[in-house]
Computed example of a mutant assay.
Amino acid sequence: MDKIIICISKFLILFLVCTFSVFAGGSKKKEETTALKKQIYGLHKVDDETSSIPYLERYLELSQNELYFKLLYAKSLLYRNDLSVPKPDEPAEDRINKAKIIQKNYNLASKLFQENVLHLEKVRPRDPNLGRWYYLWAFSEWFSDNKEKSIKLFLKAVKLDYRLTESYYNVASLYESLGQWKDASLYWRKFEKAEKELEEED
């Protein structure tokens, strides 16, 4: 009988220790994610997206399914300003390596935008910021040299949010860079018209 009581006591102690460890671990994780959120929001509030990147990466390690923070991470990569820009007087190999790093960064941004903007549209089709996310995604495709895709995304952005009149400006610029002058002219006119309508509305 004493052996049974001792075994039950040991089991209860082990159970309590395990339960405490789980709760303590969960509490520690919650504290860390709360602190990271505060840091990320603070940096984005002052437009310091670059400094928020390591905090976002850690946050997404702890909370892998956070849609909004994945989008913030994509935005931070798009606005990143800590990568070395190739200079004309540098050796060719250095310029190529720097260009590859920059390209890889924009490619990752566009991949993240694609996955998460489409998911956002699926789960929250009336999200008021959906147009803005499409607008940022369009830039990441532009910087990744996917000009045709970028044009489609800018047009989707302004369709979702008519206030994003700069989309027409960007589309016109993209068509000019592609040598499609007729299309460029059309979108310059659309931009001017949309800007005028916005001014009248204000």
Rank of each mutant, 00 (worst) to 15 (best):
L43Y: 08
K45Q: 13
K45L: 15
V46Q: 09
T50H: 12
T50W: 11
S52E: 09
L56V: 12
L56D: 13
L56K: 15
L56F: 11
E57A: 13
Y59K: 07
Y59L: 11
L60K: 14
S63R: 10
Q64W: 01
Q64P: 07
N65P: 01
E66K: 11
E66A: 12
E66S: 13
E66C: 05
E66M: 02
L67R: 12
L72P: 07
Y73I: 05
K75A: 09
S76A: 15
L78P: 00
L78I: 09
R80I: 01
D82V: 11
L83Y: 09
L83G: 06
S84M: 09
S84R: 03
V85F: 07
P86M: 08
K87M: 11
P88F: 04
P88L: 04
D89G: 07
E90R: 03
I96Q: 14
I96R: 14
N97S: 11
N97G: 02
N97I: 01
N97W: 00
A99S: 14
A99G: 03
K100G: 06
Q103C: 00
K104A: 13
K104W: 06
K104I: 03
Y106V: 10
Y106H: 13
L108V: 10
A109V: 06
K111E: 09
F113D: 07
Q114L: 10
E115S: 13
V117A: 08
L118I: 03
L118R: 06
H119L: 15
H119E: 14
K122P: 01
P125S: 04
D127G: 01
D127R: 10
D127M: 02
P128D: 01
P128A: 08
N129C: 07
R132N: 13
R132C: 10
R132G: 13
L136S: 12
W137H: 10
W137T: 09
A138C: 07
S140N: 08
W142Y: 13
D145F: 03
E148K: 04
K149I: 04
S150I: 00
K152D: 03
L153F: 10
F154S: 00
L155C: 04
K156S: 07
K156M: 08
A157S: 09
A157P: 02
V158K: 02
V158G: 03
D161T: 00
D161N: 15
D161P: 00
Y162F: 07
R163I: 01
R163Y: 06
L164K: 01
S167V: 05
S167I: 05
N170P: 02
N170W: 14
N170D: 05
A172E: 01
A172G: 08
A172D: 02
S173H: 13
S173A: 15
L174P: 01
Y175L: 05
E176M: 03
S177H: 02
S177T: 04
G179M: 08
W181Q: 15
D183T: 08
S185E: 14
S185H: 09
L186W: 06
Y187N: 04
